Structure formats: structure tokens, C-alpha cells
Simulated scan of single mutants.
Amino acid sequence: MSLVTRNVLLALLITVAIIWTIAYAIHYLNNARITELSAIEDQLSIDTLSLDTQFSLLEAAPCDIAASSTTLISTLADLGTRLSYAENQLGTNNAQVLRLKQQYSLLEIRDYLITKQLAAACGTKPVTVLYFYSNAGDCADCDKAGYALSYLHDTYPMLRVYSFDYNLDLGALKTFITIHKVDATLPAFVINGKKSYGFASLTDLEKQFPNGALAGATSTKP
């Protein structure tokens, strides 16, 4: 065997080995990714059932307990964080993500309705924000608005923020949007019943809240 032939065969073997290594790595990573995403979906399903049970418990709880409970707020927020992670991993148009987002949106609507019922029955004054965004590439300020609301929620734990994908194919959400007469000018906010559109800055967003409303939501600022 000539030196040239041997070098060619050696180069071919090295190339095959590299291709096989890459293929194996991709296969391994894909399997790991599928396993991880399946675990996320399973956990989201458990969290969804847990939230649904908490709703039922709060509906039957005395006013002083139901009105002061922050467990449901934090659990709903944690579920939203998990959903965002799944969305980032799978993409906004993935069938699993859309199904989970539908479940989450229904839970948010139910929590909002229970909050209003408690306010009427127990005389509480919750601070609520309905936030409507879009993942269709037609909302340049939606990401900034989402970050601002996350900051406000972290700063004021009793603030109830409900985030909805305006274009999500869900009958209950479409009815919810119609009832609140929210236009497709996004981002859109309904803060304690008052609508506003667009996002400029965190300071401007804070000005949309009624006087003293955020202070009443219990600040974590020192």
C-alpha cells in the first residue's frame, strides 16, 4: 500500500470517527433534552392539579385566611416561570407549550375570578394587573413590559399579575378579552380595571397604579 493511499484511508477513518462521534453526541443530547422536557411537563401537570385543589380550598376558607394567603400567588408565579422555561426550550409554537399555556391561562382566569369574589365577600382590596402580550413578533416592547412586571411582583408580593398571550387559541381567553374590551394594541394592561396600552418605562408603568395601591401590596424594599 502506497503512502498516499494509506494517508487517504487514515483521513477517511478519522472523518468517519468524527462524524460518528458528532452523531452520537447529538443523539445523546436529544434524548437528554426529551427526558428533561418530559420531566418539566410532568411537573407542570402536577403543579396544575395542585393549584386547582388550592382554588377549591380557598373558595371554602374563612375570609381572614383566604384574603391573607400568599401561597397561591407564589405557586402561580412559580408555574409561570416553569412555563417560560419550557417555552424557551421548545419554542413558542410547540404543541406541548401551547397546551400547557392554555392550562395556565385557565388557572389564571380562575384565580382572577376568585380574587374578585373574595374582594366582594370579604371587603378586600387586591391590586390586580391583567397583562396581554404577543409572541408573534408584533410587540417590540412586550419583553421589557414583562420584565418590569416581574420586578414589580418580586417587589410587591401581594400584587397579582396575570399574563396572557393575546393570540392564544383558547375560547375562555377570547371571552375574557372581549369582556374587558382589550384592543390588540400590545402590550396592554388592565390595572384594577383601568386599561392602558404601550410600555415606556418602569416608572411610567408604576404611575398607572392608583395612589397607594403598590404600598398596600406589601413592598419588600428596605
Rank of each mutant, 00 (worst) to 15 (best):
207 K>V: 04
205 L>Y: 03
121 A>W: 02
61 A>K: 02
161 V>I: 13
129 V>C: 06
20 W>G: 08
61 A>G: 05
190 V>D: 05
58 L>T: 12
207 K>F: 02
12 L>N: 06
81 T>D: 06
150 S>N: 10
164 F>N: 03
211 N>S: 14
120 A>L: 07
111 D>F: 13
9 L>T: 08
206 E>F: 01
216 G>I: 12
181 K>V: 04
211 N>Y: 15
95 A>G: 01
122 C>R: 00
61 A>N: 04
50 S>L: 15
70 T>A: 11
68 S>E: 13
43 Q>E: 14
47 D>V: 15
39 A>M: 14
151 Y>T: 13
169 D>V: 08
93 N>E: 14
177 I>S: 00
79 L>F: 11
39 A>T: 12
168 L>E: 00
193 G>I: 12
135 N>H: 07
147 Y>F: 13
1 M>P: 07
209 F>V: 15
75 T>C: 03
79 L>G: 05
170 L>M: 03
160 R>Q: 08
102 Q>L: 05
55 F>Y: 12
91 G>M: 04
94 N>H: 04
148 A>N: 01
157 P>L: 09
63 C>E: 00
50 S>D: 13
216 G>H: 03
69 S>D: 10
176 F>A: 03
140 A>W: 09
171 G>S: 06
105 S>N: 07
204 D>N: 09
102 Q>S: 10
141 D>K: 06
200 A>R: 10
15 T>I: 15
136 A>W: 07
156 Y>R: 09
161 V>S: 01
180 H>P: 00
112 Y>G: 03
201 S>D: 07
97 V>H: 00
146 G>F: 06
20 W>R: 06
71 T>F: 08
82 R>D: 13
10 L>E: 02
61 A>F: 05
76 L>G: 01
213 A>V: 05
196 S>F: 08
12 L>F: 14
174 K>F: 00
107 L>D: 11
42 D>H: 07
97 V>N: 03
16 V>F: 13
187 P>R: 05
80 G>A: 07
53 T>N: 13
46 I>S: 14
216 G>Q: 06
19 I>E: 10
147 Y>T: 12
103 Q>G: 08
51 L>N: 07
62 P>L: 02
30 N>Y: 11
53 T>F: 14
109 I>R: 08
55 F>S: 05
85 Y>E: 04
186 L>I: 11
108 E>Y: 06
96 Q>E: 09
40 I>Q: 00
136 A>V: 15
